[in-house]
Simulated assay, not measured.
Amino acid sequence: MNEDVMDFTMWQVAYAYIFIIIILVIFRFKKIPREKLLIISVLRMTIQLIIVGYILVYVLKNPHPLITVSIVFIMLGFAVFNVYQRTKATIKIDIKKIIALAMFVGISINLIFFMLVVLQLDPWYEPQYFIPLSGMIIGKTMTGVSLGVNNLLNGMKGQKEKIEGALMLGASPKVASKSIINEAYDQAMLPTINAMVGMGIIFLPGMMTGQIIAGQSPITAVKYQLSVMLGVAGTVSITVLIFLHLAYKVFFNERQQFILTKRDISKDNLPVKYE
């Protein structure tokens, strides 16, 4: 560990909470009913980060493949649950299963390639790299899949007549859904592409900033950041692709008829949107 790294006292960290007080004052002044949500979010963030910090201290001092893999799968499980929560519709159980399958398969394959081929970790389960880098890739993929899910559901509901018309003209479910699948894929990839466009000129990404603050050479930080962003792009792409090409089939029965039940309607009877 670099001895020159600037450390914080607990009082210094406490001073940062002044920003939350300022936000609460603004909320109160503008009569925005978000005070409770903000307070709960800050408390959860604080407690979760402190717990994770102490867990990582233990894990880094006692590296073990079973512990490393277990932590990554726990993160992946929470990411799947988060996608369910961020979907603005009552989704079918079949789609939930596909979300979980796509995320576990897509992320697992890409993490194995990234850790063993790109980083060439030795040992492969080195928690100092495996856990934080996995967390970054899983988090970005979660956002991409959430967008893919919501845009697929929006497309299927909003273009019901178009799909049925294509089916009546003899198109297969895959052909009838092609434009919706492509649009959902495009929207899922857009945040990752936009992030890559602005990186380095508009902002320094978090991982690169953290490494520079920790005393690493900026060139080393750039190598890590490039590798991670390319890994993120690949993981998001493959995972969303797996999901979309399995999930669209849920909207068709064995006779290739388009089916849209009450369970597909959004919780507010409105088209679902990602926020």
Rank of each mutant, 00 (worst) to 15 (best):
T209S: 15
A102F: 03
V105R: 00
N62K: 00
A100G: 10
I131N: 06
I74A: 10
D186P: 00
E164A: 07
Y15F: 15
L49R: 03
N2M: 07
I112D: 03
V72R: 00
I22Y: 14
A221H: 10
M199S: 05
M199K: 03
K157G: 14
V232T: 09
I131W: 07
P271F: 13
G144L: 06
V236N: 01
M103Q: 14
L190E: 14
L119V: 07
G234V: 00
L111H: 02
F81D: 11
G234N: 01
Q225A: 14
A79H: 02
D264W: 10
L121F: 02
G200M: 04
I18Y: 10
V250Q: 15
K36D: 05
A176K: 02
K267S: 14
L49K: 03
K97T: 09
F252S: 10
L147M: 13
G234A: 03
K88T: 12
I193G: 06
V232K: 04
V222G: 14
G165I: 05
G170L: 10
I138K: 00
G158I: 00
K36I: 07
K36A: 05
V250L: 14
F27Y: 15
L153S: 03
T87W: 07
I71G: 05
V222A: 15
T141A: 05
A221F: 09
F258I: 03
K92L: 15
W124I: 10
V52P: 01
M208P: 07
I26W: 12
Q225I: 11
M189S: 11
K92F: 13
I163G: 03
E183K: 15
I99M: 11
G215L: 03
Y125S: 12
G231F: 05
I91C: 01
L37R: 14
Y125V: 08
F78I: 13
